[in-house]
Structures are given as C-alpha cells and as structure tokens.
Amino acid sequence: MTVELLWIPVTLVASVAQTARNALQKNLTATLGTVGATHVRFLYGLPFAVVFLAAIAGATGQVPPLPGPAALALTACGALAQIGGTALMLAAMRARSFAVTIAMLKTEPVLVAVAGFAVLGERPSLGAAVGIAVATLGVVLVSLARPAGEKTQADLRSIGFGLLAGGLFAVSAVGFRGAILALPPVPPLLAASTILVTTLFIQTVVLSLWLAATDRAALVATLKAWRPSVTAGFSGAFASQLWFLGFALTTAANVRTLALVEVVMAQVVSGRLKEAVAPRELAGMALILIGVAALLLH
C-alpha cells in the first residue's frame, strides 16, 4: 500500500477504537456526569499520548518539533471545540440510543469540507463531494427517522445536542489538521503525535481547572474511578493518535467522511445494549456506507 492510501486503514482502525472509547464514556456518564466523563477522556489519555510520542521520537531519532504561534493557536481552537463536542455528545447519548447519537454527529464531514476549504484552501474533488453529500443525506435520514408525533422533548433536545456536537467536532478536525501542517517539516507520525500531546495537555488543564472551580466532587470522582477510566483513556489516546496521523496524511474531510463507518459500528454496539433502531435509521446507515464507498472510489 502506498503512503497516499495509508490514511484509509489508519482511519478504519481509529473508528473501531473510537467506538469502543465512546461506549466506555457513555457508561461513565452515569457515575461521573457529562463533564466528568469528558474529563476522563483527556486526563487518562494524556499519559498514553506522551508514551506514544516518546516511542515515536526514539524510533525516528528526531526531537519532536516545537509548535509555533500558528500551530498553538490552531491546536487550542481544536482542543476547546473538541471539549464542547464531547460534552454535547455524551449529553445526547443520555436521551437517545448510542447508534443514533453517533449518526447525528456525522453531519460533520460536510462542515469539515466547507471549513477545510475556507480555512486551509483544501477543495474536495467532485467524487469526494458526491460521497460526502450522499453520506450526509444518510445521517439526516437517521436523525429524522422517528415520526414527528413520536419525538419527545428529550429527543428534540438530543438531536440539537448531536448536531451542535458534530459542528464542534468539525471545527476541531480542521484545527488539528491546520496545526499539523503548521509544524516544521517532520515525519507525519511525529507531527501527529506532537499535536496530540499538545492538545491533550490543553484539554486536561482546562477541564481540571473548570471542575476544581465548579464541581470538585466530580473531579474527585474521576480520580477514584481510575480503573475503568484508564481503559477509556487508552482507547481515546490510541484512537486520537490514529486520527491525527490521518489528518497528517490527507484532508480532514476525507478522514471524517470515511469515519462514518462508525455509524454501522455503533449499531453493533447498540444491538449488544438492546437499544431499538428503526428501519429508516437502518436505511440511513446504508446511504452512509454508499457515500463512504463513493469517497474511496473517486
């Protein structure tokens, strides 16, 4: 496989790891709350990311590059947007099924493509644009699968949370891609790992200070729940390492569109959790797969 296509298996493995991480975080939300479960992702992911960076630096024989002002600004923007997106995602999961919440988040590729073009000047090809559009249509079908009369206030609030979370994740993806490109020339894996460590450090500090000021009980709870949190932290750090490597290899729009396979993976998780999924939601997931296929074949 050529380096140009390496982003495909990297993104697929990242999707598997992220699905596992999201399921673990959903379970932690019941005991730690939304912000506490969000904090776990960054607090327990940071040590693993540092180990990854040290191993990569040792293997390549190169010192990690020092992010300049532009890289730091883009990283901070992506880090804060990801905090908000993660919190809204977990809040949405409390009202709707795991699979449907993940699907609502996946309006992200269109927003990533638009933001990537506006901020980084990365224009998608016609084939990629068609794939993104078809996959997003599938997301819309999944999100609106229930008849209007069956939607409760909690459902509508959850849809809003999911769509807003998708927008914030789009901002974070473009921010991270831009930060990696702003680094001095180094191997893609080293650049990705450098920005990942910087991102998790910012996120850990911000959320630790926030919880210390607003909810110390939740902060203490995240420290006490270290056993399940370490697993979630490792899954998150591993997935993020691969996401960032994907961003180093190709456009954020390509990576986030292929990541729509998470919707199908989430359906498998929902089946294990015995959560009902409507036929129209399954039809929407089929469109998502068609859109992903169009992206890969363009």
Rank of each mutant, 00 (worst) to 15 (best):
T2N: 15
V3S: 15
E4V: 14
L6W: 08
P9D: 15
T11L: 04
V13A: 12
S15K: 00
V16I: 13
A17D: 11
Q18I: 08
Q18W: 06
N22F: 03
L24T: 04
L24E: 04
K26M: 09
K26V: 09
N27C: 03
T31Y: 01
T38R: 05
F42E: 09
L43A: 14
Y44K: 11
L53R: 13
A54P: 12
A54M: 11
A55S: 15
A57C: 01
G58T: 07
G58K: 02
A59I: 05
P67G: 06
P69T: 03
A71K: 12
L72I: 11
C77P: 01
Q82I: 07
L90F: 14
A92I: 08
A92R: 10
M93H: 07
I102P: 03
L105S: 10
K106H: 15
E108V: 05
L111E: 02
A113V: 04
V114Q: 04
A115G: 06
F117E: 01
F117C: 12
A118T: 11
A118K: 06
S125Q: 11
A129T: 08
V130C: 14
A133F: 02
A135T: 01
A135P: 00
L137C: 08
L141S: 12
V142Q: 00
L144Q: 03
A145L: 10
A148L: 13
A148M: 12
A148C: 06
K151S: 09
A154T: 13
I159R: 03
F161P: 07
G162M: 05
L163M: 11
S172Q: 06
A173H: 02
R177M: 03
P184H: 07
A191P: 14
A191Y: 09
S193L: 03
S193I: 05
S193Y: 09
T194E: 13
I195N: 13
L196M: 15
L196A: 08
L196G: 10
T198M: 13
V205F: 10
V205R: 10
S208N: 13
A212V: 06
R216A: 01
A217E: 15
A221I: 02
A225S: 15
P228R: 09
V230I: 12
F234Y: 14
S235K: 02
Q241W: 15
W243L: 05
F244K: 09
G246E: 04
F247W: 08
F247T: 11
T250R: 13
A252L: 04
A253T: 08
A259G: 11
E262Y: 09
E262K: 09
V263E: 02
A266M: 04
Q267T: 08
V268M: 05
L273H: 14
K274M: 08
K274V: 03
E275A: 04
A278N: 10
G291N: 12
G291H: 11
V292E: 02
V292I: 10
A293N: 03
A294H: 02
L296H: 12
L296A: 12
L297C: 05
H298L: 07
